[in-house]
Design a protein around this nucleic acid. Sequence first.
RNA 1: GGCGGCAUGGCCAAGUGGACUAAGGCAGUGGAUUGCAAAUCCAUUAUCCAGGGUUCGAAUCCCUGUGCCGCCUCCA
Length: 490
Amino acid sequence: MTLKIYNTLTRQKEKFVPFKKGRVGIYVCGPTVYDHPHIGHAKSYISFDVVVRYLRHLGYKVRYVQNITDVGHLTDNADAGEDKIEKRAKLEQVEPMELVEMYMRSYYEDMDALNNIRADISPRATGHIPEQIELAEKLIDKGFAYEANKSVYFDVSKLKDYGKLSGRKLDEQESGARIEINPEKKHPADFALWKKAEAGHIMKWNSPWGVGFPGWHLECSVMSMKYLGETFDIHGGGIENVFPHHECEIAQSETANEMPFARYWMHNNMVTVEGQKMGKSLGNFVTLKDAFKLFSPLTIRFFVLNTHYSSPIDYSNEGLDAADKGLERLHNTIRNLRERLGSSGNEGAVATGDWKGKLEKYKNNFEEAMDEDFNTAEALAVLFNLTKEVNNLLNSDEEISEGVLSEVDSLYRTYGGNVLGIVPEKTVQHDSDDADVYKMEEDLIKALIDTRNELREAKQWEQADKIRDKLSELGIIIEDKKEKVAWRKK
RNA sequence: GGCGGCAUGGCCAAGUGGACUAAGGCAGUGGAUUGCAAAUCCAUUAUCCAGGGUUCGAAUCCCUGUGCCGCCUCCA
């Protein structure tokens, strides 16, 4: 079995062979931290989180770098307009760096909730200004960039393969169609490496060309090569960044290093809301903090993974409701399984017979799905097929060996937990971490269940149902099973 | 105007030439189980946007048309 990845650069699915045996370097474009993260961030970073998790599952030693863009770049286009971070900072009446800190924390808070494992290195653009200046100088020295009015631009016409990622040709672009042509540029498609700071600009640094700030594309080139080397394995990002951002990164990096840049380019698709792209400038975005009020982070994660990363998803309450129920079903089975696991009492640490083969089959099916360009939708289907069979097993009257139970549980932990991140370590019934509250809550519920059982024995159904209904209103679901009465939180 | 993508059951969504008599989730219907529920199980629901072509064989490849979306300005 070999992992295959769709490479935007070659426009085909390719076998994944890392640059250095056993190791993978991956760089994913991070957020610009000037607002709370939204559903779009969730899709992107969940997708790449699973990529990293699966690569690690396959045994690769992965170094995952994801930048934090903490210098604003510009509101209107790459070369004009106001710095987004400054603009927002003024609005909120805080220092730009204060704003950055605030939203960076917000970002991590939400990503942690979504169960994304943090990157190994999270470099910040403002922490790499000298390197960015150095790269711009190098490009000038090589004759691929020029200074104009204290700004520096990359000379696109010097590069024969500019456009190889996005499939664009310079002369086919309708320059100036939507933005005004900057007269400082030799060619309309030239892009800024360094911009002169106009009066009143706050976030600025000294440079050989005067006081200014770096162009947007430069940071990713600099930080990826610094931490992953001039050539590295995977570069990921949103599909909307293929052009110009990633195209420009390639131009800068490959010109400077005279080496291939990223070997596999992965692009995740967009989130739409009512069929329309969700964009910062469109103002129709749903923040994760708002979404979390209605749905659990794991439900959102499951919803995202139910569609291939390269397909768009439409965010809707109906869609999330459906996902919520599906995930609940999976969790129910796992909880039942784990309850049974501690109590079956019979020995035999490994699965034998039918189940040995079945588990092997499910593992293979899961990995085959993931090997096909991280097909999480199909991988989830494999888990649901398993779930049906596990439910049948748990419902049957036959004795189940501890080995089977524990191997099924470990399959859920490995694939549902470690790889997809949708199966929690513990299936907890409580919200509270406080041991005293936890204990009291449990005792109270048990007391009510005991009372209800007495009523049931006396066939006083009305009273018994009243307790069940009341508990249900409080979010506690009672399930009368053959052997005992179980409860769980909704 | 240029470049790219998508169109699969009521909804969401895999599958991209032959075990597809099309995965999986949600919803519906009928049944089993239950004091009633909950949970679970069983059964049931599609010929793949339209038309043409290639092929022994197509949802899957090619052409035409229709509709939707993204990029060419910041954006995950």
